[in-house]
Simulated scan of single mutants.
Amino acid sequence: MSLILALAACGGPPEEPAEPPHGYVAGASEASEAQSALAYTARDSRQLHLLDLATEQEKQVGLTIGARELTEDGRFVYVTDGDRTLEIVDAGVWTVDHTDHVHYYRAPERTLGTVTFDQPVATVAGFGAHTAVGTTDGRIRVLDRRQLEEGRISEVSTIDSGSTTALAVPYAEMLLVAVGDDRDKPANRIVAMGPDGKPNGALETPCAAPRGWVALRGGTVIACEDALVRIKQTDGGLTAQRLDAPGTVADTGFGFRPRSNEAAVAGKDTVWSVNAAKVTLKHLTVKDRELVTAASPADAATVLALDSAGTLASYDLESGRMLAEKPLKATTLTLDISRAYLAEPPARVIHEIDYADKLRTARTLRATEQPDLVVEVGR
């Protein structure tokens, strides 16, 4: 009887291979919550630290260059030496936003290697399928970001902007490229291009001296000299809407809460707060202090700003009134969905601030090396 059953089992139809579960990523484990970490380093250090915000445990990734600037795209940390070399580090933590639901992942952290350019690196923009690296000669090299996810650095194309601006923003499987007509002057428009670096006819819109960008749920926002331009993919293709800004928009970079529609950028005494979904822009002037950066908690009511003395303040967007302040001697500001993180390098600490509770200090995180350069990944 045992022999008959065994033969019957062997003679049955082969089993169909199981379908990978929704959200499956080879080589990564899925988590139930964001695997946020602070990536930090001392200036000129060859060690990148990854401080887990849930456990406060720290890992290190050795670098082959001395760090001068850090940029992140949620998963990858782009380290530059202040000149022509870029090192790409996979932080091993990231979030995939499907709008109606979110996936959180963790994988081993590692450096993927370096890329050397003909001129100093000026901009790095990573999002979706591509990472675009601009250099001071107005040229942009496009890397395949999905190959970075596989551990390989692969170049897709090189774009000549025809200007002094070297900025290309990956969006909707395309590139939004700052283009000009004079190699000695800044770009004057944004042109949609394919990954091959050729215009695809999807969009061309004016933008004087493009100087920064942010990808929000309601579209990508690019800062121009006197306006912000919201670009969004719709069923009919790409659309652009211009939001005129009073004065000159600064190039300090946008601060924003992940998976939101709002972001802020600061000038010396001015803050602009943009809502990409509603296509609105609010502006306030700050007196008696010099601002270095700003960020939006995405509550449609307030904005955070860090001044040159290292003090964090919260302002009402409508009246401009200060709601709370926190003297910290901080130099950097980053936000996640419920906290702000501000580094105080000489003290080797990073302050975790509850921005929804009158800037209350939630934790003081100790750094093993002076945190001159700090970005948040996994958020």
Rank of each mutant, 00 (worst) to 15 (best):
H351D: 11
A276E: 01
A340D: 00
L333H: 00
R348H: 09
S154R: 03
A9I: 01
E16L: 00
T368K: 02
L86G: 00
D244K: 07
A37D: 10
F127E: 05
R141Y: 11
K268H: 08
M174Y: 02
K268E: 12
T252S: 12
Q47F: 01
S296Q: 15
T311W: 00
L5R: 12
F127I: 02
A172K: 09
R348K: 10
T95C: 03
A28F: 08
R348I: 03
T361F: 07
N200H: 03
E155W: 01
R110V: 09
V89F: 01
D336W: 06
R110N: 11
G201W: 00
D336M: 05
L70W: 05
G218S: 01
V177E: 03
D357E: 12
L281R: 02
A67M: 06
H49P: 12
V191A: 00
I353E: 02
E72A: 11
D52P: 05
V214G: 12
H351V: 14
P327R: 02
K358C: 08
H98M: 04
E290V: 02
T158D: 08
E149Q: 14
H351F: 12
A367V: 06
F117C: 04
G134N: 13
S296C: 15
T270P: 00
G62P: 09
D83M: 06
A245I: 10
V286E: 02
A172L: 05
M322Q: 14
A263D: 09
I153F: 06
T55V: 15
L5V: 06
R110D: 13
K326Q: 11
E16N: 00
L365S: 04
G74P: 14
P206V: 01
T136P: 03
I222W: 05
N261M: 08
P20V: 11
V133E: 05
D73M: 11
L51R: 02
V124I: 10
T71S: 13
